[in-house]
Design a protein around this nucleic acid. Structure first.
Length: 262
DNA sequence: TCAGGAATAT
DNA sequence: CATATTCCTG
């Protein structure tokens, strides 16, 4: 374990130095070129973002969920987080926000929530804890606290669905539904080169135990008398036009849901 | 010390 | 209501 650092410095020997590389804030291709080929620009990243990303990468590398991470990454990527518009500040032009910077109120868009639910479904109840969820969601700018808060609400929602005073409490089976408990001992066994691993079949092993409903989703639920079924999580039928079958147009379709950060 | 989770606060 | 923040616990 201790030799990680040794290896790291070893790798670093062959790498270009920081001043040999173009700054991350600069696009690698000209805007003209980009538009000519319909390439959407990469979202800007601050030094902090980069650091966070590399930390996550490192922690992923040293085991635990290497597999899951790669699965999710390959499915769809480059998600951004959307914040409430406000904040007159902007603290400095760039670089170090000297921390103490106030995080803005995160908005859980249907896309974000979708990711969230997917991840939670993949980890068992056991493993669905804020930190892990956050890492697997792999959303830029998302904090553990964000996830924790959302998770709390989500669990509340789930509870109301099952036991809650609702109508159909056909439970009885709580068989700790869990699909992929994160390979107990699948640690630093990164088989060398293969970054794409065996993940051939695109099927995401999502199983929800019995009547474990992930979310109300669009489906029409018995609407008697008054509208809406469960208050709280009406995602899925929200305003948003997109998110039906996108995510494969790669270059073109990925639209910035927001300005990640500036 | 960190992280999870319920209780609060905004 | 939706999110954030605090507080307690392991």
């Amino acid at each position: 374990m201790g030799d990680y650092n040794d290896h790291v410095s070893e790798w670093e020997l062959g790498l270009p130095t920081t001043d040999e590389l173009p700054p991350l804030s600069q696009p690698l291709i000209t805007p003209e070129l980009a538009s000519a080929f319909s390439i959407s620009p990469e979202p800007y990243r601050t030094a902090g973002d980069v650091n966070r990303a590399s930390e996550m990468t490192l922690s992923s590398l040293r085991g635990q969920y290497s597999k899951l991470v790669s699965n999710f990454n390959s499915i769809d990527n480059s998600m951004c987080v959307e914040f409430d518009v406000d904040e007159t500040d902007r603290t400095g032009t760039d670089s170090k926000k000297s921390e103490t910077m106030k995080r803005q109120r995160l908005v859980w868009t249907p896309q974000l929530h979708k990711r969230f639910v997917d991840v939670v479904a993949h980890l068992g109840i056991k493993n669905a804890v804020p930190k892990t969820i956050m890492q697997l969601m792999n959303v830029e700018g998302l904090t553990r606290e964000n996830v924790a808060s959302h998770l709390q609400k989500y669990r509340l929602y789930l509870k109301r669905m099952q036991g809650g005073g609702g109508g159909l409490s056909s439970e009885a089976n709580d068989q700790l539904f869990d699909s992929t408990p994160v390979p107990p001992s699948l640690n630093e066994s990164r088989s060398g080169s293969g970054s794409g691993s065996g993940n051939v079949s695109g099927h995401v092993p999502m199983h929800y135990g019995a009547q474990m409903v992930p979310m109300p989703m669009p489906m029409q639920m018995p609407v008697f008398g008054h509208m809406s079924g469960y208050p709280g999580f009406e995602y899925g039928m929200m305003q948003h036009k997109d998110w039906s079958g996108n995510k494969f147009d790669a270059v073109n379709s990925y639209q910035r849901i927001s300005q990640c950060d500036k």
